[in-house]
Design a protein around this nucleic acid. Structure first.
Lengths: 115, 115
DNA sequence: CGGGATCCCAATGGATACTG
DNA sequence: CAGTATCCATTGGGATCCCG
């Protein structure tokens, strides 16, 4: 998204971070990329429901914000790999406490495991 | 926003948390409420640019999600106070590492203080 | 295979006026 | 004061087709 739409993104760290991860699919993309580098078509399959246009758009925004790296291999058939930058990895870590909170309070309690 | 628009919000803590704080002004509201309870008109002034309709809407979403508490005082003139619930405070803490990341990497470096 | 170009829609949010 | 009601502008995102 545009930072312009995030009030306070120029003076508040949370708002600035939100501006970067805003976008319907970005956290899913972060999640997939944090595991290993992925190709375009791979991501399309891993993130069901996303359209090609939007996938390309959100990847490019993440790239612009320095979160993902786009590596183009000059082969045929074409191959492009997306991976997290160091900054992207840090973001992922910063998100972990938020994820823990969400898991603790918002997600349905997991069924107790039998001994 | 609606959880429905957040892919994975039913199984991923980060997505679930994002669903709760999604909304153009919610982090600003969290920021103001974390300091002390606030009245409606107070928030309207503290968060410049927000309209009454949107302020009311986002407050009610936060209330529905258990983040803010709405206390109505039966007086005249009417008075309503909004405050963070314990859950809201936890969310605020969970956001701190994200805020630190944003401050570190996205915000313009603060001018060095003279000794 | 990895996208760019278009067209379309629904949801979010802005402005303003009105009410208990 | 604390909202609701109404109307409207923006835009993120979906669908599809096309191209190197």
């Amino acid at each position: 998204m545009s930072v312009a739409r995030r009030p306070g993104a120029d003076h508040c760290g949370v708002a600035a971070a939100m501006a970067v991860i805003d976008g319907k699919w970005k956290v899913s993309l972060l999640w997939e990329l944090q595991q290993r580098p992925r190709r375009f078509g791979e991501l399309r399959r891993l993130v069901p429901g996303i359209s090609e246009k939007v996938l390309a758009a959100q990847l490019r925004e993440l790239e612009t914000d320095g979160i993902v790296h786009r590596e183009v291999y000059d082969e045929v058939p074409p191959r492009v790999e997306y991976s997290l930058t160091p900054l992207g990895r840090e973001l992922d870590e910063a998100l972990s406490s938020l994820g823990a909170w969400g898991t603790r309070h918002l997600l349905p309690a997991p069924a107790p495991q039998p001994a």
